[in-house]
Design a binder for these strands. Structure first.
Lengths: 203, 203
DNA sequence: CGTATTCGATACATTGGTGTATCGAGAGTG
DNA sequence: CACTCTCGATACACCAATGTATCGAATACG
């Protein structure tokens, strides 16, 4: 195996292990040792690739954020929009594409809290939020127009949906076996979409 | 000072210090030593009052949660409802009464994430969520009726507002000097209230 | 006034994690 | 085939935190 290729693979495995460990132990309690053990390396390998645990986390988080967002965008663009007739249909389609990732939610929530008290990190989270809204906006507008709803302020709608998503995700995870939480979440999504759009367009 | 009174005071000071340290260091990185130092005690005092840091945190969090919620309830019940004429007025009144506590948000968010991966703790968060909705419901219904809106499903509305509150709080804190975030939050609150109520009642 | 008790301080042993310095194997290169 | 360089392993010194065991002072109590 060529040396640089090996290095890439090592970093990848460390990323993977980091996500698992941060999810299992919590943001503040994950240690370099645990990550190395899970990845099947020693600390020597770690320090040869990253300067600190923070650096590894940041790289992993940014990387995975982008991947998830890109996957979502592709999934939505490739979605079958044939039988999309109501706002509710749009909501259910998007909700299904987003999914619920327990571990990722925890890691992101803890990182966000951490970022709020760490000057240099706040912007990282802000940019992420922005990227999500920016990615979601065009496909959302297009879907809604298709079901005959015109979006007045796309950015406001996207941010509102992100907020609702985050808020209801907690509720869904806190009561994991209550189907009502799931239904309430969809209802709320739908209500927001309807409130932020007007009938019109080519429905 | 009578011995039991002294003990109560010691515990109170430890609670206070715990909140500060957990907010400053993050849930996973707070240490017994830091809490003691800030409270002006040694670890001897700590272990004489609590079995572990977890125990102290839980006591502090539950205690303060109740206090905050009770304060909110009283503030709303004592609010001047004379010039309450629109749903927007209700939203602004409640929003002002709730306020935004940066440190408390971080601590609660991190604890929630922690609770999601700790079996015995999930229910604690669930009960809290429930208590908030339960406290908010009656006063909300009464306010809205006063401005001529009838609430179809009070519990659903309360939970929706909690979700929106949590989700938009992050957005407000991430962009602390963007007044637009604040406005978007109120708009979203209003939209949800309108969507979950119907005209009618004694307006 | 002396005795008992409560509560917090001190000291200690132990653990777990960090980061660095050094080493060795193995793959690319001329 | 030898030479070199990359990358991960090993070993070491260090620090921060934990929990317990013991001690001393202050207060209640007979």
């Amino acid at each position: 195996m060529p040396p640089s290729r090996r290095r890439v693979e090592t970093r990848r495995r460390l990323h993977e292990a980091a996500l698992a460990v941060f999810a299992a132990e919590g943001f503040g309690r994950a240690s370099v040792e645990q990550v190395c053990e899970r990845a099947g390396f020693t600390r020597g390998a770690f320090y040869s690739n990253f300067a600190s645990l923070d650096e590894l986390f940041l790289a992993m988080w940014a990387d995975r954020s982008n991947t998830l967002l890109e996957d979502l965008r592709r999934a939505l663009e490739a979605a079958d929009t044939a039988d999309l007739t109501t706002a509710r249909d749009v909501v259910e389609l998007v909700d299904a594409a987003v999914g619920v990732d327990d571990a990722w939610y925890r890691v992101t929530a803890e990182f966000t809290a951490h970022a709020l008290r760490t000057p240099g990190l706040r912007e990282v989270v802000a940019q992420r939020e922005d990227a999500i809204a920016g990615t979601l906006t065009p496909v959302l507008v297009s879907f809604l127009r298709r079901v005959g709803r015109e979006v007045a302020d796309p950015r406001a709608l996207a941010l509102a949906l992100v907020a609702v998503h985050d808020g209801t995700t907690v509720q869904c995870l806190v009561e994991p076996d209550d189907p009502a939480a799931r239904r309430r979440r969809l209802d709320l999504f739908e209500a927001v979409v309807l409130a932020y759009t007007t009938p019109g367009g080519d429905a």
